[in-house]
Amino acid sequence: MANDNNRDTERAWELMEKIGFAMLVTHDGDKLRSRPMAAYVDRQADAVYFLSDVRRHKDDEIQKNPNVNLAFAHAGDQKYVSVSGTAAVSNDRAKIKELFTTTAKAWWDSAEDPNIRVLKFTPEEAEFWDSPGTVISYVKMATAAVTGSRPDIGTNRKVAI
Rank of each mutant, 00 (worst) to 15 (best):
K97D: 12
A88T: 15
W129C: 07
W107M: 11
W13C: 14
A38R: 11
S131W: 01
F50D: 13
V25S: 13
A71I: 06
T155G: 00
N91W: 08
N5P: 04
M16W: 14
V68R: 02
V159M: 03
Q78L: 12
A73L: 06
P114N: 10
S34M: 07
A12V: 11
A111C: 10
M141L: 13
V159L: 02
Q78Y: 15
A111R: 10
N5W: 08
K95Y: 01
T134C: 07
G76A: 09
D113K: 06
G85V: 03
N91Y: 08
G148H: 01
S84R: 09
A94T: 01
A71G: 06
N91V: 08
A12C: 05
Y138E: 14
K58Y: 14
A111H: 14
K79T: 13
T122L: 04
V118P: 11
P151M: 00
H27G: 05
V54Y: 06
Y80T: 02
E98P: 10
R56C: 11
S34H: 04
F50V: 03
P66Y: 00
I62M: 03
I136T: 15
D59A: 15
F121C: 05
M37W: 03
S84M: 14
R55K: 15
A75Y: 09
A87S: 15
K31I: 14
N5Y: 10
D77Q: 05
E127G: 04
M141R: 13
N115G: 15
A126K: 02
N65Y: 04
Q44A: 13
G76K: 09
V146D: 04
L15N: 05
A73F: 08
E10M: 08
D42H: 03
A71C: 07
N65Q: 11
T9Q: 09
I62R: 00
K58P: 12
I19K: 10
D113F: 05
K158M: 02
G133Q: 08
K95S: 00
V159Q: 10
P123D: 11
F128P: 06
T134E: 06
D53I: 12
E17N: 15
K140V: 03
T103R: 12
